[in-house]
């Protein structure tokens, strides 16, 4: 099996200040990788560099494209990268409003992604939008409501539907459960796990919540001060952490 994503030597500086340094890994189809670390550890910078939202100073992000095999997405033209971002890639933001169009109906938010990849038949688009809203447990009678009329958890589920409707192969998630009630988080985790399994998605999830990565991620990368300090199987890193910082991180979690 070929890696879906190969990341090599990614470094990003903000002026003289380090964002992240020399990060590399391979992600295979169907794998979910978690990136944890405290605020300012560089995890969101890294995610931004991988997803083409920030320009790293060095490195390569090779994505196994459908047509031409592995290509460095950092060297793609802007239109090419934008096409990738709305077909094979998806980005789930921490704040749903960053990933949604708040002035457009729920159905429109989902349908818009389909139209961006060429769907034109109104009936089909609407049916598919309703199908996806159902999968994220938003009932059909809310399809014409705007996201502003939704709760935070519903907005987040709508954002996920909008992102996944085009059948992406790689999903970037930035604190997808951050700021949600724990009961809503659980529902979202269940939903994400089901989607990963059924669609064979690969995902990279940035979070500071160790319980979330334990349940969602196969592999884990721990970052501190812009550097990767430890990587491995998620349960191994959490149950037998090797680096001092990871040991501190794991032992600092409050048990319930």
């Amino acid at each position: 099996m070929k890696p879906l994503l190969q990341v090599r030597d990614i470094s990003k500086f903000y002026g003289a200040r380090l964002g992240c340094r020399d990060v590399g890994f391979d992600l295979y189809p169907g794998e979910v990788m978690g990136i944890v670390g405290e605020s300012g550890s560089g995890k969101s910078t890294l995610l931004g560099c991988l997803a083409g939202q920030l320009a790293p100073d060095t490195g390569e992000v090779l994505f196994d494209t459908r047509g031409e095999g592995p290509r460095d997405t950092l060297k793609m033209s802007e239109p090419e990268r934008r096409m990738l971002a709305r077909t094979d890639w998806a980005f789930v933001h921490q704040h749903a409003r960053e990933g949604l169009r708040m002035g457009v109906s729920a159905g429109g938010n989902v349908g818009e992604r389909l139209m961006a990849v060429g769907a034109r038949h109104y009936g089909d688009i609407r049916d598919q939008a309703i199908d996806w809203l159902g999968r994220v447990e938003i009932s059909e009678d809310r399809v014409d409501d705007k996201p502003t009329a939704f709760s935070g958890g519903m907005q987040q589920r709508l954002q996920i539907a909008r992102n996944l409707v085009t059948g992406p192969r790689l999903v970037f998630m930035d604190e997808p459960t951050g700021g949600l009630d724990v009961s809503v988080q659980a529902r979202l985790l269940d939903l994400l796990r089901g989607l990963v399994r059924e669609m064979g998605l690969s995902a990279i999830i940035v979070t500071h919540d160790l319980a979330v990565v334990r349940l969602l991620a196969d592999r884990l990368m721990v970052m501190k001060d812009g550097h990767v300090v430890e990587t491995g199987l998620t349960d191994q890193v959490l149950d037998d952490p090797q680096h001092g910082y990871t040991q501190l991180l794991v032992s600092s979690v409050l048990q319930v």
Binding site: G232, L233, D235, Q236, D239, D240, Q242
Partner: peptide
């Protein structure tokens, strides 16, 4: 047992 499972290194 945990080492056999790869849970401990």
């Amino acid at each position: 047992m945990r080492m056999i499972y790869g849970n401990y290194l």
